[in-house]
């Protein structure tokens, strides 16, 4: 953090400079979200009610949340484990240029979510996709119908495409934060490689790992475009149900939409809070 030696003289008029931006955030972020929150606790006449939350206990909504949580958890954990391993492999590459190139690749691909990505997966793993055909031809392995890119298993593969590079980007700085002297001290004091990883490296990496997992979870939980492009209404996720209440493709119930949105916000909020906490932990150690 910077230290500011000059003491601003007119503090309150200085705050005026921030006012336009604050007004914008209030108008298009804070107030709408707060109104959504209050709306979720009101009935059609505007009186306080828990009716909307009763509505979302319907099996379809409960299943959509359960699916969202499962997909997010699976892709977060798989992404974190694979990202940790691949991230370490990249981090330990002898050539800095190759390492830089792979980090740049991760940087680009983690932003490749959405419709084009979903379509690219249809191209390779659709029922006539090139990978599907290659499996059939060279391994005599029919992927369909056990696997389908349009189903949840396909969704996991497609999500991993942006989860994996995100984890790699998050974990490489953490590896870089492991100081060589820690390994050398541990080794000097008699520890072997396993003892070093178990007692020093992994505990130090844990906050970054947790931060990565919750961030990946939130990333997947909030995703919509990829799932919608791949599965359309075949896939029941929380975000897809919320979108339905906007577009009115099924029984259009704005109240239920509000409640679904609030529950999603709650889950996301918990993720961001854990992320912030874990990250501050990681930073404190990195001093």
């Amino acid at each position: 953090m910077m230290s500011f030696t000059r003491i601003p003289r007119k503090t309150w008029s200085n705050w005026l400079g921030v006012a336009p931006f604050l007004a914008f955030c209030l108008a298009f972020e804070i107030v709408p979200v707060l109104l959504l929150l209050s709306g979720s606790f009101s009935d059609k006449q505007g009186a306080f009610s828990l009716g909307n939350y009763a509505k979302i206990s319907a099996p379809i909504y409960v299943r959509s949340f359960w699916n969202s949580i499962q997909i997010s958890a699976i892709t977060a954990i798989l992404g974190a484990i694979l990202g940790l391993l691949i991230g370490y492999a990249i981090f330990r590459l002898p050539s800095p240029r190759v390492r830089e190139a792979l980090i740049a690749l991760s940087d680009v691909t983690t932003n490749f979510a959405g419709a084009p990505l979903a379509f690219a997966f249809i191209v390779i793993l659709g029922s006539n996709g090139v990978v599907t055909l290659a499996f059939e031809k060279y391994f005599a392995l029919k992927l369909y119908p056990a696997f389908s890119i349009y189903s949840y298993s396909g969704l996991v593969l497609a999500y991993l495409y942006f989860q994996l590079p995100l984890m790699i980007l998050l974990i490489i700085p953490a590896f870089a934060g492991l100081r060589r002297e820690w390994w050398e001290s541990a080794h000097n004091l008699g520890a072997n490689t396993f003892q070093y990883w178990r007692r020093i490296a992994l505990p130090i990496l844990t906050p970054s790992l947790i931060a990565g997992i919750v961030l990946l979870f939130a990333n997947a939980f909030g995703a919509y475009a990829t799932a919608w492009t791949l599965g359309g209404s075949n896939i029941t996720l929380a975000t897809i149900q919320i979108a339905f209440t906007i577009t009115g493709e099924v029984l259009h119930d704005p109240g239920a939409g509000d409640a679904l949105a609030v529950v999603s916000l709650l889950i996301m909020g918990v993720c961001i809070a854990i992320y912030q906490f874990a990250n501050s932990r990681a930073r404190r150690w990195a001093r």
């Binding site: 709408p32 909030g222 975000t239 939409g257 916000l265």
Partner: peptide, 10 residues
Amino acid sequence: GIPAVVLALA
């Protein structure tokens, strides 16, 4: 922390 669908809805 705000999914795009929720922002759109709000």
